[in-house]
Every structure is written in structure tokens, then in C-alpha cells.
Computed example of a mutant assay.
Amino acid sequence: MKVIPGLEGVAVAETDVSLVDGERGRFVYRGHWVRDLAVSRRFEEVVHLLWYGHLPSMEEERRFGRLLSEHRELPPHVKEIIDQIPAKTDMMSVLRTAVSALPVTGSWPPAPEQAAAVLGAIPAIIAYRHHRMQGTPMPKVQRDLSHTSHYLYLLKGTAPTVAHERALEAYLILTAEHGMNASTFAGRVVTSTQSDLLSALTAAIGALKGPLHGGAPSEVEGMLEAIGSVDKVESWLRARLEAGERLMGFGHRVYKTVDPRAEALRRVSQELAGEDPWFQLALETEKIALSLLEEYKPGRRLYTNVEFFAAAVLRAVGLPKQLYTPTFALSRTAGWCAHILDQAEHNRIIRPQSLYTGPIPATS
């Protein structure tokens, strides 16, 4: 046997859920370019595509939207559990605990209706904990808002602007799924044992909680805040590179060309730049950073990744930094559930091996 650290380059499943081709910059959900879905479809439509294999008709979209909205109200016992979690506990740990307590049947195989019960509840989990920590009242659940709009409404108490809803919708669609990443793999491993949906999802949330997987947008925002204004971009970035430090939001383990998710979010940022100066700062920073990276690190193929424009979007719509990774989890739940359903349909327990490197005891 040959050890492949991190399983890099090793395929562990066949799936038609998505294609992530980092060499050629191709990103597909079930036969559709994701960049096109992000600017032309609603989040509910894309989730339907991931779970059921096709974009919904108008009637199917209405039914699916109603299914998600039926689970927006948190059960009292889940609220009580959240209330008992110490205040210093991070939001991802709260989310992991609350998801595990949702009243979702553990029947096998898992079904889309179970997945909808979790996805429908996650915005309320995040918002409920957020308001408890801020000492503010939790807004009353609304049934007539879209999933994206309702999430922003729960956090702020008012319906979002069209621009903010559109920006966050694009982000949620682009981050809903991304192949066999660490958290998706964790969910599929648990599913392969014929464990229940909630166990698989809590494993996935635990993996996403790690800073090497889900924490990059906060670091990008810190960089943009430090730059402060468009006239300071080049001097700040050049000083950083001269000091041998990284520019956050550039380069990706998978993509060796332009990240198609970043391309789509750039389009959204360009359209909204006149409405929010934060988008203009991000666009100018990206332009100058790419030029400087080619100057200082020629041939390294360091392109803009999705976290760069994710930071611009999440800041512009008014999310506090501590909600960046939970919001990522909200979107990625769609992809996790798609893979859990896919694994269950073609199940074989995932059981890799390891090479023993320790001593062999003497023969007795």
C-alpha cells in the first residue's frame, strides 16, 4: 500500500452531485454551470437541483419553499438547550449542538424531507443564539420570505434590501456545495455506516469548524479593514509582500486558475459597487493585488479565491464576523445533505487502511 497524505488526488466515490475541476476552473452542479446559477436562480431552486437532480418547475419551487418554511420555528426544547450553552461558546459549537437536538427521525435511508427540516431550522438557530448573546428580541418567524431573505430578517428584524438579498443569495448558492471537501467527506463517512442524518451533519459541522476549512473570509475582512480606503491599497499590499507575508483571499489548494465562484461574486460586487463603497474597495484591492502577486511571485498561479469576495458580501449585508462561518454552514448544509442522500443511495462503508510504523514485539 502507498500512503497518500491527506488523500490528495484519491477518489473515494462516484457522484453526479458536482464537478470541481481546479486545473480548468470548471464548477458544475448536476450539469449546470454554478456561476450561471448564482446570478439567475434562487437558493431554493439550487437546493432542489442538488437534492432531486433537476431544477424545479414553478409549482415544485413553491412546494419546496413551503417545505423549508414549515421548519422555521424552533421547538422549545432546542431553545432551552441553546439557552444552557455557556456564553463563551463559539457559534459553530452552538450550531453543532442544536442541530443534533432537532426532532428529525433517524430512519434509514435518509430522505429529502429530513434534510429540509434541518436546512429550514438553521437560520433560526443562528439568529436565536445571536439575539440571546446581544440581549435583543428574536423577530417573529415569517412564512412569506425566501430562505435568504428570512435569514437576514431574523438577524436584523427588518426585511433586507433587494441588493443585499441578491448578494447573499449568490454567496449561498456558490458555497452550497464543493465536491469531496473535508466536511463533506466527514458526512459521507458517517452516512456510510448507516448512521442517521443528524449524526452525519454534526460530523460535517465539526469539520467545517476548523480554521483550515471555514474561517478564511474573516481574515480577508481584517485585511480590507486594515487597508481602509482605495487610495491606500497599493502601499498597504506592497508593504505586506515586502515583509514576506500572505495576501488573504488569493490562492487555493484546488484551483490553479481563476476560482469560478470568485468570478460570479465579482460580477455581483461590480453591480453593487455604486450602492456600497465596501464593494468598490474590494474590487480595487483585487485588481492591484493580482498585479503585485505577478510582480512578486511570478508563475505561482495565485488567483482570487471565493473567500475574498465572500468577505465583501458578508460585510456589506451587515453580518458580524462571528457569523461568517455559521453562514457558510447554512449554505453548505445543502451540499452536505446532497452527498448524504447520494452516499445512502449507493452505499458502501468507507473503511480506508493505515500503515503501521511502530515496533513489532519479540516472538514469545
Rank of each mutant, 00 (worst) to 15 (best):
W108C: 00
P103D: 06
K79R: 15
L201P: 07
L19G: 06
D36T: 05
P160H: 01
D83W: 05
R30A: 12
L95A: 05
I340Y: 01
L323E: 06
E45I: 13
A282K: 02
A116D: 14
L74W: 14
L341E: 01
A101G: 02
I82M: 15
S192T: 13
E60G: 03
L302V: 10
V17Y: 13
L212P: 03
S149F: 02
E23D: 12
L319P: 14
R300M: 05
E165L: 00
G335Y: 12
A115R: 00
H48G: 02
P211L: 15
G206Q: 07
L201K: 09
Y296K: 04
Q134D: 14
E44P: 01
R300P: 13
L292Q: 14
T191C: 09
P123C: 03
Q343F: 13
L198A: 11
P75K: 02
T304Y: 12
C337E: 12
V39P: 07
T89V: 15
L7W: 09
M58R: 06
M58D: 15
W51H: 00
L155A: 08
G228R: 10
H150L: 04
L314G: 02
D36S: 11
G120H: 13
V189S: 10
A310Q: 01
D90I: 04
S183N: 15
Y151E: 03
P76M: 06
E8F: 14
E221T: 10
L37P: 08
Q142D: 12
G299D: 08
P110A: 08
P320H: 11
K297F: 13
G106V: 07
G228V: 03
E8A: 01
L265A: 13
P361N: 08
A204Q: 06
E245F: 10
T304I: 15
M223E: 15
D259E: 11
K297M: 08
V258R: 03
L49T: 07
T89H: 07
E59V: 10
P112T: 01
T105C: 05
V258S: 06
T333W: 00
G244Q: 12
V78M: 09
V254N: 02
H130R: 06
S331P: 05
W278E: 09
A204W: 08
E242V: 02
L198P: 05
Y171R: 00
G244E: 12
R188H: 12
